[in-house]
Computed example of a mutant assay.
Amino acid sequence: MIGLGPLTGLTAGVTLAAVVATFGIARLRGRYDTIDSFWGLGFALIAVVALPFGTAPVPMRLVVAVLTVLWGVRLSVHLHLRNHGKPEDPRYRKMVERAGPRPAARLFVRVYLVQAVILWFVSLPVQFAMYGNGFGVTAWLGIALWLIGFVFETVGDEQLRRFRADPANRGGLLDTGLWRYTRHPNYFGDACVWWGLFLLACAWWPGAATVLSPLAMTFLLVRGTGKPMMEASLRRSRPRYADYVARTSGFVPLPPKRTAAR
């Protein structure tokens, strides 16, 4: 067993090493969007590294690790399959074009190192939860919230995958299933997962100090690289998107509004 302080140092080093290795793989593949496939696996790696060192009861540590690994592996597999066989994500191509004479070095610092810091910071509730006091009210609430988020994220992604796989939907807009109630069921689910893990960290009072971690993840999804970038692209490519925005909640699932067009 080691203390929480040394553990956070260990996970920081592991995260950095894993991101450097991912960058090497990206260079070999010639695709900088490899970091997207690593994102979820990075959280799973931190959970596995932290598992043996905590002082929380073993069942508590196992639950935290399993929930994190399930979420992380599913997300990484989903993103890898989504990108496989397709050209590199346009976001990364634009970054390369704007990076100047040394694009690899610039992308390593501006994308890979930045994501390493964010990944480690967002994972703090997982690390703190390994030192908690066991299953109390907040832990059970956290598990319930995690489950809601995991279902929303998994079902939303699968509904979108099936919609895109049907040639009849080419150029169309998914507004059924979970997408009828929120424009981003997968992002909403992602946020719920991390607020659930935060509640698990609150099984002991220092865990409450990690509240900035789920706030950071939620901010990235709602105001950062998630929702705004996705919606900007859809506004340009989908003529019906403005009507969809007018009647559908932007994040939290709500009954659709009535609009004049309907």
Rank of each mutant, 00 (worst) to 15 (best):
A56P: 11
E88A: 12
W71Y: 13
R91N: 01
E88Y: 12
V73E: 01
D33S: 12
H84R: 14
R98W: 06
I35G: 05
G72C: 07
P59N: 14
A104V: 04
V64L: 09
L70G: 09
Q127E: 15
R61M: 09
A116D: 05
A47S: 05
R102L: 13
E97D: 08
I46T: 00
H80W: 14
R74V: 01
F108C: 14
P103F: 08
A47I: 02
F38Y: 08
A129D: 04
A65V: 02
V64Y: 03
K86R: 15
T68I: 01
A56K: 02
L107R: 08
V58Y: 07
T34R: 04
L119A: 07
R98N: 13
L70V: 12
Q127H: 00
V58H: 12
M95G: 07
A47G: 10
V114F: 15
P87R: 09
E88T: 06
W39Y: 13
P59C: 00
S123F: 07
L107C: 10
G54A: 10
Y92W: 02
L107T: 02
F53P: 02
M60P: 06
W120R: 04
T68E: 13
Y131I: 07
H80K: 10
W71K: 08
L75T: 06
A104K: 00
L113S: 09
W120Q: 13
D36E: 04
A47C: 09
L62A: 13
A129T: 00
Q127W: 01
V96Y: 09
N83R: 07
P57G: 07
